[in-house]
């Protein structure tokens, strides 16, 4: 059914509410090995601990739906623009197939899910990117959904909370993908002029065109411990300068040290931290 999507450009059926397949980061089985400390942890324990290693506090990556479940109040999330789907504007071979594959394996339509929700009772517009969906890359749909989030925030005078996770602009959409950086940044400029609050949250990994546009433009910029944050990815830098990069380079702690992140927030504290910030800003309107 989804395969027809790219042949019949007129009308599509999407499955926005298909639940994300559980345990995507974690191999099937009862036990999982922490990719940081090597500790073997009981999967159920790990899940219960919000996918944070019980021994070393390593933060496993979360899918977009898992993240929403973690941050938004139960049953409060109402998805927006789930009917926006990517096409293959440059006629790039294998892109259409890649999209279908990503939709089927990751269980979401695009690399970002957006919607309205409440966080400890406070209404927000929320967006969460998923690095598993074609590297969380930004094509026209991601750019459009992000732009519409801020427009929704403007319209309803709501703050925006956006969790970034991306390898950058989506190569298969060429210059159109690059221009989403311009689009999202323009909308944020307007959002700012209205005096509304934008909290940007870096999650692992965020690089390229997303770092170089909306993710870096938050009034308050937060990150999970250990998150890779950069413009150029570390592998490309190593190839370019032909040197090994120092331990911790481009990690959240490094970015904090260099002044590009306001605070590092462990997963267990994200919701309460966001709620506190939201409360300090009222509904986000200065003299509202």
């Amino acid at each position: 059914m989804l395969k027809d999507l790219f042949r019949k450009p007129k009308y599509v059926t999407v499955k926005p509410d298909k639940p994300a397949p559980a345990k995507r980061d974690i191999p099937e089985g009862l036990w999982v090995k922490c990719s940081d400390c090597g500790e073997i942890v009981y999967t159920k324990e790990l899940e219960k601990n919000q996918k944070v290693c019980l021994k070393c506090q390593f933060h496993f990556r979360l899918g977009a739906r898992e993240r929403i479940a973690l941050v938004a109040d139960e049953e409060s999330f109402r998805e927006l623009d789930s009917n926006l789907v990517s096409v293959n504007p440059l006629g790039f071979d294998t892109y259409s197939e890649k999209l279908i594959e990503a939709q089927e394996t990751v269980g979401i339509n695009e690399a970002v899910i957006t919607g309205e929700a409440t966080i400890n009772g406070q209404p927000v517009v929320i967006g969460v990117m998923d690095a598993q969906f074609i590297m969380g890359s930004m094509g026209s749909v991601v750019g459009e959904k992000v732009a519409r989030m801020f427009e929704r925030g403007l319209e309803k005078k709501l703050p925006v909370v956006l969790f970034a996770a991306s390898g950058g602009a989506r190569m298969q959409e060429g210059i159109l993908a690059l221009m989403q950086m311009a689009k999202t940044s323009s909308v944020i400029a307007r959002f700012n002029e209205a005096g509304l609050l934008y909290i940007s949250f870096f999650t692992d990994p965020t690089t390229g065109g997303v770092t170089a546009s909306f993710a870096s433009l938050g009034d308050i910029i937060l990150a999970e411990p250990g998150t890779l944050i950069g413009f150029t990815g570390p592998r490309v830098i190593e190839q370019t300068i032909k040197q090994k990069l120092p331990q911790g380079f481009q990690r959240a702690e490094f970015m904090l040290e260099h002044g590009f992140v306001d605070a590092i927030v462990p997963r267990q504290e994200i919701k309460t931290t966001l709620a506190m910030i939201l409360e300090l800003h009222g509904k986000g309107v200065a003299n509202g």
Partner: peptide, 24 residues
């Protein structure tokens, strides 16, 4: 430029800010 200094000084932030500021 992609390099250590460029990252340390916020290449991504610098570009993002230009985009936002230029738009207005």
């Amino acid at each position: 430029y992609c390099g250590v200094g460029a990252e340390e000084r916020g290449q991504g932030e610098a570009i993002a800010r230009n985009l936002m500021e230029m738009s207005t």
